[in-house]
Computed example of a mutant assay.
Amino acid sequence: MSILKQIKTVLWSLIGIGRRQDMEDIPERGSPIVLLLVALVMVLVLVGTLAFVAHTVAG
């Protein structure tokens, strides 16, 4: 399973766009555990980036 497909699936779910056919194929793209881990990493990267930007602007 390609990590790029996992990231694409998480991003589609996050912003709520995507074709119906693609959404129906999500269970076949990988295990839910992998999708959760990818989503967790993406959230941590987002929070880290926002914290870095806030620290840079405030400091």
Rank of each mutant, 00 (worst) to 15 (best):
residue 3 I to G: 11
residue 38 V to M: 01
residue 45 V to P: 05
residue 49 T to M: 07
residue 49 T to V: 10
residue 54 A to N: 13
residue 30 G to Q: 00
residue 38 V to K: 00
residue 44 L to Y: 07
residue 22 D to V: 00
residue 14 L to N: 14
residue 38 V to N: 05
residue 26 I to P: 00
residue 54 A to E: 07
residue 22 D to P: 00
residue 29 R to C: 00
residue 38 V to E: 02
residue 6 Q to D: 03
residue 26 I to W: 01
residue 41 V to M: 11
residue 47 V to A: 03
residue 42 M to L: 04
residue 3 I to N: 15
residue 19 R to H: 09
residue 1 M to H: 08
residue 14 L to Y: 15
residue 1 M to D: 15
residue 6 Q to E: 05
residue 59 G to Y: 12
residue 32 P to K: 15
residue 15 I to V: 08
residue 38 V to P: 01
residue 52 F to K: 15
residue 35 L to G: 02
residue 21 Q to D: 15
residue 51 A to M: 07
residue 15 I to G: 11
residue 47 V to D: 03
residue 37 L to V: 06
residue 16 G to R: 07
residue 2 S to N: 08
residue 20 R to S: 12
residue 32 P to R: 08
residue 18 G to V: 00
residue 4 L to Y: 06
residue 49 T to D: 06
residue 59 G to W: 07
residue 55 H to A: 04
residue 47 V to F: 03
residue 36 L to F: 12
residue 46 L to R: 14
residue 41 V to W: 14
residue 42 M to E: 05
residue 7 I to T: 09
residue 7 I to Q: 03
residue 3 I to P: 05
residue 4 L to G: 12
residue 13 S to G: 14
residue 14 L to K: 10
residue 20 R to L: 14
residue 53 V to C: 12
residue 9 T to Q: 13
residue 30 G to N: 01
residue 14 L to S: 09
residue 6 Q to I: 02
